[in-house]
Simulated assay, not measured.
Amino acid sequence: MSKEDLKIRLMDTHAGGDVSRIVLGGIDPLPGATVRDQMHYLRDDADGLRRLLLEEPYGIPEMSVDLIVPATDPEAEIGYIIMEVMGYPIYSGSNTICTATAVLEAGLVPKREGLQQFAMESPAGLVQIEAQVNDNVVETITCEGLPSYVDTYRASIHVPTIGDVTYSVAYSGGFYALVDATELGFSLIREEERALADCAHRIVEALQAERGFSHYTLGDVGPLPFLHFMGPVDQVSDHFYRSRSTTYVHPGVICRSTTGTGTSARLALMNYEGRIKPGDKLETVSLRETGFIGEFTGTRQEGPHQVVENTITGKAYVLAHSEIVINPEDPLVEDGSLHHILSSRQTGDD
């Protein structure tokens, strides 16, 4: 190993099967008055970090990366920036669950037995966290889902090789196309994963070519990136529902989990259809039989939209503690937009 080699200290975790690689050390402080500003700097001037950790030989596109940064909001204990194969989402439920677990396990937020609450600062703003700790183990994390709403209800689009597809669109941290899996011939089992990815890609391409979507305060947030397949909704008990689900995020990439933002989008749609009321919960179940529980906590009016307030509950597991060695002479390391943010300190000394 060259003396010029640098290291990035990591904790790999997963929630619902989606791996989130938490960057705990090895990156210099980023410029920016808020975590959102720091995200913009990373996106525009240091995207090499995202590419390094999500591409071969260090990673795979199905993973996510969460960079721990100092919070700028005085109410937050820690800040974090989310990086995925499609770019820099301002929020993600599974990444938030993984990051909250990681900062507790790493001691960045002191872990306390029982129920503890703290806040983290995401690019979307302050996020309230509730952690259940039993025998020093983080059993569950409940985090706020972003305020979610239905933008489009049961529209139709012609998709080449598929035919006419009925879809709705909800915003829950990104715009989601919501489609009925049964109408498209899917049972939402693991053997369908490749076919689901191919089908979703065709639908998303058709939607991106036909129209754009604008958030009521954020404005244009780019082309619709996500599609959520919805299975039938079963009522398990009073105030508790369950539905098989799966989320497409990028060509060839189906999330292992049902995703927190996908679950929030489902709650918004169910509220729009009058199928749930505050206090009701929906468990979304993935192709791998993992699940998140979304709770519909209330609504408020934002301009023309009835916005759904919600929380997402899940469990994250620690997979590994490691150091990534970065050799600038390695031809697979494109350090032009990376090297200037790598800390010259050894991460083991951080």
Rank of each mutant, 00 (worst) to 15 (best):
G219D: 09
T290L: 05
G348V: 00
I78P: 00
L188E: 13
K111L: 03
G262R: 06
A209E: 12
F213V: 11
M120E: 04
D198T: 15
S243Y: 03
Q306P: 05
V137C: 04
Q116S: 08
F118W: 04
C143E: 05
S337C: 07
P61W: 01
G222K: 02
M230F: 00
G303F: 08
Y149A: 01
V179S: 13
L227Q: 09
Q346F: 05
M120D: 02
L196Y: 13
A268Y: 03
V69C: 07
P232M: 08
T297K: 13
L6W: 08
E210L: 15
A265F: 09
I8E: 11
S245W: 00
V307S: 08
E283M: 11
V179W: 11
T311S: 12
G174N: 14
Y149R: 00
E302D: 13
A124T: 05
L104R: 09
H305F: 15
R9G: 15
L115S: 04
V65P: 12
G26L: 03
E295T: 14
S243M: 12
T166E: 14
T347K: 00
A320P: 05
G125P: 06
L319K: 05
R202G: 11
D220A: 09
L338R: 01
T152N: 15
L332F: 02
L207H: 05
P331D: 01
D335L: 00
E309R: 03
L342P: 01
R50C: 08
M39V: 01
V138I: 02
G32R: 07
G25T: 04
G87P: 05
Y91A: 03
R288G: 15
T247S: 11
A119R: 10
S214V: 14
I157T: 11
F240G: 04
G185H: 11
R288C: 13
G294K: 12
